[in-house]
């Protein structure tokens, strides 16, 4: 139980890297698609809705497998410069996670934008503030504050999602835990250690979000 701890802690770094990079890219994708969802053009709107529907309606495992095993099959694709990125399981996992969390984030941000009281925007307009500044200085800060609790849940879900990286040969926390279980055959001990590390991360994220909510609360 103690001997497995250093190995598992080392793997935790991989998990955290996967998580932070995916969240970083996912936030941009989410913001982009949330803005597209609010667009009045029907085609753009339907496209953004379709994106979030497909990524939220299928398991993350399918998405990783399509990106990692599926895309490599296209001959043309292998000859482009993108192949440098897509042949690495590490980047495939990050792309799949980013697209997945992007879909959920776009829904969270969309509902946050929609719940902003029209009065705020009208007030801005009547003060003669330009639309661009209204968007960046009024809508975005309010939307971020509104979506903090839901986004906190999404971070925790994504943290659990990174465990799927172990299915595409990456040695993240779950991958290493599985390896130790299958070599030592001590499932319960390893589960307790790896589970505690995950729980600790959940605890930290949960409290961080709570702190931010308080700080930016009104």
């Amino acid at each position: 139980m103690i001997t497995s701890l250093p190995k598992l802690l080392g793997a935790t770094v991989v998990t955290l890297k996967l998580l932070s990079l995916s969240l970083f890219f996912g936030l941009f994708i989410g913001l982009l698609f949330a803005i597209l969802r609010l667009n009045k053009n029907k085609i753009i709107n339907k496209f953004a809705y379709g994106y979030s529907y497909i990524f939220r309606g299928t398991p993350l495992l399918v998405q990783i497998f399509i990106i990692y095993f599926g895309l490599g099959q296209i001959e043309y694709f292998r000859s482009t410069f993108l192949w440098v990125v897509f042949k690495e399981p590490y980047w495939c996992a990050i792309i799949a996670f980013s697209l997945n969390t992007g879909a959920y984030t776009s829904e969270i941000l969309r509902s946050a934008f929609q719940t902003i009281k029209p009065g705020f925007i009208e007030a801005g307009k009547s003060l003669g503030i330009s639309n661009k500044i209204i968007f960046y200085k009024i809508q975005i800060p309010i939307a971020i504050r509104q979506s903090l609790p839901a986004y906190g849940n999404e971070i925790i879900l994504m943290m659990k999602g990174t465990s799927l990286a172990s299915t595409v040969t990456l040695m993240d926390l779950t991958g290493v835990a599985k390896y130790i279980i299958s070599t030592t055959f001590k499932p319960i001990e390893v589960f307790i250690v790896a589970g505690s590390i995950y729980l600790f991360m959940t605890f930290v994220i949960h409290n961080l979000i709570k702190f931010l909510e308080k700080k930016y609360g009104y």
Partner: peptide
């Protein structure tokens, strides 16, 4: 708070 996959491995092994 724990990944689903880890729970499945626990039960599987």
């Amino acid at each position: 708070g724990v990944p689903e996959l880890l729970v499945i491995y626990l039960f599987f092994f």
